[in-house]
């Protein structure tokens, strides 16, 4: 199973399927009988303007699989970079980007996934943070309903560093964000958050694997979302604490609302612990909006749609409040409001 090879060799047998335990709810092999032709290159007018426009001077664009292959932030430097992943048409493409953040440097990465058409796409990112380096990644993904997209991120965190991400998505025909983080501990911290707003027949899968390899590390995860229509939300989170990684404090929460009888939410929050001096916890809830609270709000005069929207915004808002980059949080908040108004 290897999506990159599946696309390069146009071999559907390489696609992950539900027989792979980690893909049981995001079956690609059952969905795609053939791999589409390679996508054709995109002209500048097909690329347009992204949702983070104006928040950073520097902008990288990966369009239909072609774009820059490396980004290096020098030690001690502070940079904000926009990364746009744009897909158009009905082809297949994959790209890989290597990001290195030098010792003590800070990178704010504003990443968007746009368009999609009915393409099959893979974006792989390798992110290395040297000692004391930090990175905050904000992701807005709003793809067409026929797109199939996978984004893989491998993060190598170092001592005293910090990695934080907030992925917000409206899903696609099939979509997966997979984050794999190697956590050396040594006073480093990770925050992996997510928000999904799904309607129609969309699907989104937020998967993360955090491997604590050393002592005294912190991981904090909060994912919230709602599924309406016939959509399907998948949350998979695995926290592994290796032998000797004592003093690890890891918390994971996933809270989902199902707004329709035909929507589905699947979750697998996993703890895999090989050390004894740890404090690990996860909590997962799935439910509907509370009818009693809705009635209470309506008794005070709010129309049902407004009451639902207000509840949804406050429910998802707690994830947005955890974003460090204030201007980014503002942009994300209005992005969210625009989609909740229509979606709830």
């Amino acid at each position: 199973m290897n999506l990159d090879e599946a696309i390069r060799l146009r071999d559907p047998a390489q696609l992950p399927s539900r027989r792979d335990e980690d893909w049981r709810w995001t079956d690609l092999r059952g969905l795609l009988r053939t791999i589409p032709e390679p996508s054709s290159p995109l002209g500048p007018q097909a690329i347009g303007v992204g949702p983070f426009e104006g928040l950073a001077a520097e902008s990288l664009v990966v369009a239909n699989g072609s774009g820059p292959e490396t980004l290096r932030v020098a030690p001690g430097e502070t940079r904000t970079v926009i990364l746009r992943h744009v897909s158009r048409g009905d082809g297949a493409h994959s790209a890989r980007l290597r990001i290195e953040v030098g010792g003590g440097a800070r990178l704010t990465l504003l990443e968007s996934h746009e368009g999609g058409g009915s393409s099959l796409s893979l974006l792989g990112v390798d992110l290395t943070l040297e000692d004391g380096a930090s990175c905050e990644r904000l992701v807005l993904a709003d793809l067409d309903p026929e797109a199939v997209a996978v984004v893989e991120l491998d993060v190598e965190l170092s001592a005293g560093g910090r990695y934080a991400q907030t992925v917000l998505t409206t899903g696609a025909r099939r979509q997966r964000f997979e984050t794999r983080l190697r956590h050396p501990g040594l006073r480093s911290e990770a925050r992996l958050d997510g928000v999904y707003i799904l309607a129609g027949r969309k699907h989104a899968d937020l998967t993360s694997v955090v491997r604590h390899t050393g002592p005294d590390g912190r991981t904090d995860q909060l994912t919230r979302g709602f599924a309406d229509g016939q959509s399907r939300a998948v949350f998979q989170g695995r926290i592994t604490v290796q032998e000797g990684a004592d003093g690890v404090d890891a918390r994971m929460a996933h809270n989902a609302l199902i707004l329709s009888d035909r929507a589905e939410v699947d979750a697998r929050p996993e703890l895999e612990i090989y050390a004894d001096d740890v404090a690990c916890a996860h909590g997962a809830t799935v439910g509907a909006l509370d009818d009693d609270v809705l009635f209470y709000m309506r008794q005070r005069g709010l129309a049902e749609t407004d009451a639902r929207a207000l509840l949804a915004v406050s429910f998802l808002g707690e994830v947005i409040e955890r974003i460090d980059f204030a201007a980014g949080a503002e942009r994300v908040r209005s992005w969210l409001l625009a989609r909740i108004g229509a979606g709830v």
Binding site: D261, V265, R268, E270, H282, G283, T285, A288
Partner: peptide, 22 residues
Amino acid sequence: HTVPYIEARNGACTFEHEATTT
């Protein structure tokens, strides 16, 4: 290890799951 699978397929179900390892 804790490996719970949760599958909710309608809009009127309530699942609560809590786990701790200490």
